[in-house]
Design a binder for these strands. Structure first.
Lengths: 224, 224
DNA sequence: TCTAAAATGATACGACTGGATATAAAATAA
DNA sequence: TTATTTTATATCCAGTCGTATCATTTTAGA
């Protein structure tokens, strides 16, 4: 039965869990610290969430919900947009979310370093479906000339998301090394601009793939 | 005094520490597990390395040594190369190293998620000097036309290294989600090709920044 | 106001942690 | 050989971990 108080304690625990798991990962976080941050007795975790593992899963599901909301919030207007504008819109929303909630990327990173039951759960429920759709969208955008098409969609996807969120993952390092706060609004917008410039094909190249008839954009094959 | 046996136990511990810290981070690793993997008594860690912290630092220093070696191994020939060839060479070596020793990136990632004494040590001794030089090299390459020059060097640098190593950091996830082993030689070379294509400016654009006199490559300013 | 359910709090337990110590074994030097 | 130093092993310790138990308080419905 919902009492109001129950929801409050639950959500306080969830919020504290997101912060702690985001900073120290599953292994590095103690439920006692979460309870302390939430200002509740640590026994409550066993009551509201049956275990540390369940609390972790709840935190992940909560963050993925926010991600979905953030990336698709303008979806209704996508029909009116060009393929290029759609990519710019979703990429911008994704980067803004990565800046607002770096915890999700961090939690996933902690788990993706080694095999575990948590990684299995994470992959089945979130990563595989999410990444499959994302790679399909990248492949489509390649066909539409928004991205270069001489690179496998999978590599392009992983470069894209890495480019988008890496700088926020490494925020404490950048702050310490160069005294730059990447979470400043100016920095975020600058980063969005940079990532879009770097990952997308120049706008004029879309309708005329080979302006001079040669393949001058694609002569990297001798690199490896 | 070196006895051979001493070095052997030390290096066995160091190797096991690299693997464990690379998988589970500092907090998630126990010295007992390291000793077990190394096949030695866990008391030896206290003898050869004064503490878990010192062992971690030794592992990091060891990996940074390997990185430096890998990236600069062709440095003698850089003089004979064009700026573009130098970038291709060092980027290729960096990506190959990231594939061979993903542990370094992983260990750094674990620490860069939150403030700590280890992050301070890491930043002062390795990250700041390494990154400063890398960003300076990126800025130079931008002037030389190897990279686009309408993006801040810092953002470009972090996009570059993220693009290079992210796929190897997430190897367990990619293996699980798509059954692809990114450490296969073919995959590594494919990734090198993709990253170079995506991060570098098209080769023909170097000596003629604006073939038709307009700035068609740089009209992203309206994005943000 | 009374009762049952829901929620919280206090405490305890066994397992594991990093580190310390004391001793045994091995290697070296004389 | 013997004496000395170096290396390895076996326990021990105090603290923390996740979680289980149980008493207490709070809440909701009658």
């Amino acid at each position: 039965m919902e009492t109001g108080l129950e929801l409050d304690t639950r959500s306080k625990l969830l919020k504290a869990a997101v912060v702690q798991f985001g900073k120290f990962g599953f292994a590095g976080t103690s439920v006692r610290k979460i309870a302390e941050d939430a200002g509740v007795n640590h026994g409550s975790i066993k009551y509201h969430y049956s275990s540390k593992d369940d609390l972790w899963r709840a935190a992940v599901a909560y963050l993925y919900g926010l991600l979905d909301e953030a990336v698709h919030k303008d979806e209704a207007e996508w029909k009116k947009m060009s393929p290029r504008e759609q990519i710019i819109n979703s990429a911008t929303n994704f980067i803004r979310f990565s800046a607002k909630h770096p915890e999700l990327s961090r939690i996933v990173f902690f788990e993706t370093m080694h095999e575990s039951e948590r990684l299995e759960w994470l992959t089945e429920n979130f990563i595989r479906p999410y990444t499959s759709r994302a790679i399909a969208r990248v492949a489509l955008a390649q066909e539409q000339g928004v991205y270069v098409d001489d690179v496998p969609a999978m590599n392009l996807h992983y470069v894209n998301i890495a480019a988008a969120k890496n700088i926020f993952l490494m925020a404490p390092e950048i702050k310490r090394a160069f005294d730059i706060d990447v979470f400043d609004d100016d920095q975020i917008e600058q980063h969005i601009d940079a990532v879009l410039k770097l990952t997308m094909r120049p706008e004029n190249a879309e309708e005329k793939p080979s302006p001079d008839g040669t393949d001058t954009d694609k002569n990297f094959s001798n690199v490896t």
